[in-house]
Design a protein around this nucleic acid. Structure first.
Lengths: 147, 147
DNA sequence: ATCCTAATTGATAATGATTTTCAATTAACA
DNA sequence: TGTTAATTGAAAATCATTATCAATTAGGAT
């Protein structure tokens, strides 16, 4: 709970440091990103924000996500269907478990990939900067629905 | 080299088994997918195929990739910019190393993720079906260009 | 508190990747 | 060889995202 407040403050600090204005719309978007745990899509964020800001434009949501991403404060996951999901809560690379039915994303508690990353760097001669690790399957809720 | 021929034969067998016709266009697309090692995009495949089939439609390439994907014979990687890359050479989940500059994708030789996958399944109660592991960095060619 | 200005917003058009539609073509079976 | 359902080519449509532009406004200066 307190983590979300910290994340919010960090992102706001970053925005100020880069000379950006803190508009009510932007604050609302940062709030949603900072506290989100399910890696929402733009559509999810837009839908949620509509409750408090009925006239906010979808373009405003997109512009702000691009801005916060450019500051390194949100992790972006792209999917083959062209959609993207965002994590403002933990913007550094980390594993995900994704349900192929309901699209829910959860963060498992796994060991660091540092060792593997070093192995990869040494084998390929790439300068490795980050990674993406996702597991795809069916969550227990969706498994239960099959019954 | 012989692997490509095998992959081609496997995909062709799968298509036949599912009652699909073997048109010259489809054979050409399967050939490119089966021998590709760089995980080409639709644009890459279309560009390559134009040499032999100048009148082939982009829609034909898209339709055939969707078809082959539905047979489980091509691995699809989605990226945040909305583009997709395809591997018909090794369609099962495997690690990738991706250059963020030239977009080159190579397959490192890493140990299986089976252990981690079991750990994830047990921790999250998901039925894990597959995974995606990508490392992002800069390849040695692009590093050399910086000099 | 007021003024000013550049950043930001809202609405909408545009872009790029992909999918759909439909008439024409053709693979492959009888 | 004839037939037919699958497939193709061309172009329109769809969808996620970005760009444009007039209007609005956050926040710094006074």
């Amino acid at each position: 709970m307190e983590d979300h407040k910290k994340r919010f403050d960090i992102i706001i600090r970053k925005l100020k440091d880069h000379g950006h204005k803190l508009t009510p719309q932007r604050l609302a978007i940062v709030t949603i990103l900072a506290r989100s745990e399910g890696h929402p899509s733009v559509e999810d964020i837009f839908h949620q924000i509509k409750k408090k800001f009925p006239t906010m434009s979808l373009a405003t949501v997109y512009r702000n996500i691009v801005l916060i991403k450019s500051l390194g404060e949100v992790l972006e996951l792209g999917f083959p269907d062209g959609s993207n999901r965002y994590d403002g809560n933990n913007p550094t690379p980390h594993p995900h478990v994704i349900c192929i039915k309901c699209k829910k994303i959860v963060d498992p508690d796994l060991d660091s990939l540092d060792e593997i990353q070093k192995e990869v760097a040494s084998e390929t001669n790439f300068t490795i900067l980050n990674h993406r690790l996702d597991f795809f399957g069916i969550c227990s809720d969706c498994m239960a629905e099959k019954v």
